[in-house]
Amino acid sequence: ENVVSAPMPGKVLRVLVRVGDRVRVGQGLLVLEAMKMENEIPSPRDGVVKRILVKEGEIDDTGQPLIELG
């Protein structure tokens, strides 16, 4: 899985990584606010952040691509 998608609709509060960062499975990639709760979205695998497809403050839909890993 190279693309991390939104598991729920919500607002992107914080992006915790930058392009080029090495990430490990379970590491937080970004924080979504949904139903007044903050949810940290973890990396599904080890890899390198290739692209960040959303910006802080954006509203996303379920299934929307958020981050691409390489």
Rank of each mutant, 00 (worst) to 15 (best):
N39Q: 14
G57W: 06
E68Q: 08
E68W: 12
P65C: 07
V54C: 14
K36E: 14
V31G: 00
R18V: 09
V49Q: 01
I41C: 06
P9N: 09
V17N: 00
L69M: 06
K55N: 10
L30F: 08
E58D: 14
R22V: 13
E58F: 12
A34M: 12
N39T: 14
V31P: 00
V4K: 03
D61K: 14
M37I: 13
G10R: 04
Q27H: 04
R22H: 14
E68I: 15
V54D: 01
E58P: 11
P44S: 05
R24F: 12
E40N: 07
P42L: 14
V48W: 15
L53N: 04
G63P: 04
T62M: 13
I59L: 11
Q27R: 03
E40D: 05
G28M: 11
D21Q: 14
V12T: 03
G57Y: 05
G57R: 05
R18G: 08
A34F: 15
V23D: 01
P7L: 07
Q27T: 07
G63V: 05
L30E: 00
V17F: 00
E68K: 05
V54I: 11
G28Q: 06
K36W: 11
I59F: 14
G10I: 06
V19W: 04
G20N: 06
V3N: 06
D46Q: 07
Q27I: 05
E56N: 08
P7D: 06
E40G: 04
R45F: 13
D21H: 06
D21S: 08
R18H: 10
R24I: 12
M8R: 08
V4N: 03
G28L: 14
Q27S: 05
I41H: 02
G70R: 12
G20A: 04
V19C: 08
V25R: 14
E68A: 08
D60V: 15
I52S: 01
Q64Y: 10
P7Y: 07
R51M: 09
L53C: 10
E38Y: 09
P65H: 08
Q27P: 01
G47R: 02
V15H: 01
Q27L: 05
G63H: 08
V4Q: 03
L13V: 12
A6H: 03
L30H: 00
D46Y: 08
V54R: 05
A6F: 09
I67C: 04
R14M: 06
G63F: 07
V12D: 00
P44Q: 04
V12R: 02
Q64K: 11
M35E: 13
E33P: 00
E38R: 10
G10W: 04
N39W: 15
G47N: 02
R22G: 06
V25M: 13
S43G: 02
V25Y: 12
L32M: 13
V48D: 03
E58G: 06
P9D: 06
I52D: 01
P65S: 07
P7E: 06
V48M: 09
E56C: 09
I67H: 02
A6W: 08
V49H: 01
V31M: 05
E56L: 12
M8I: 09
P7T: 09
E68Y: 11
P42R: 14
V17L: 02
V4W: 03
S43C: 09
L69E: 01
L16E: 00
L13W: 02
P65T: 07
K36I: 06
D60K: 15
R51K: 12
V17D: 00
K50Y: 11
V49S: 01
G28N: 08
G47W: 05
E40S: 08
L66R: 02
L30M: 09
R22D: 08
M37K: 12
K55W: 13
V54N: 02
N2I: 14
R45C: 13
P7A: 08
P65K: 06
V54Y: 05
S5T: 15
E38Q: 11
L16R: 03
E38F: 09
G63Y: 07
S5F: 15
G57D: 06
L69H: 01
I52K: 02
T62P: 10
L53E: 02
A34R: 09
P65N: 06
V25S: 10
I52N: 00
G63I: 05
E56D: 08
N2T: 15
L13Y: 03
V3A: 06
P7W: 08
I67V: 10
A34E: 05
V23W: 04
M37T: 11
I52H: 01
G20V: 02
V49C: 05
I59A: 08
V23I: 08
V25C: 12
D21V: 07
A6Q: 04
G26E: 02
L16I: 05
L66W: 06
K36Y: 12
K11F: 09
V12P: 00
L53D: 03
V17Q: 01
L13C: 08
K11C: 08
M8T: 09
E38T: 10
G47K: 01
R51D: 05
Q64M: 11
L32Y: 15
D46W: 08
G63W: 07
E40M: 14
V31S: 02
R22C: 14
G26H: 05
V15M: 07
V54P: 02
R22N: 11
G20D: 04
R51L: 09
M37L: 11
S5L: 15
R45I: 15
V48L: 08
V25K: 15
V19M: 05
R14K: 11
Q64H: 13
L30G: 00
G57I: 05
K36F: 13
S5A: 12
V31H: 02
A6I: 05
P9Q: 11
V4P: 03
V15D: 00
V19D: 03
S5Y: 15
G47V: 02
P7Q: 07
A34P: 02
L29E: 00
K36Q: 14
G70M: 14
R18S: 11
Q27A: 05
V23F: 03
L16H: 03
P42D: 05
P7S: 08
A6C: 11
R22P: 09
E68M: 11
I67N: 01
V49I: 12
S5R: 15
R51N: 09
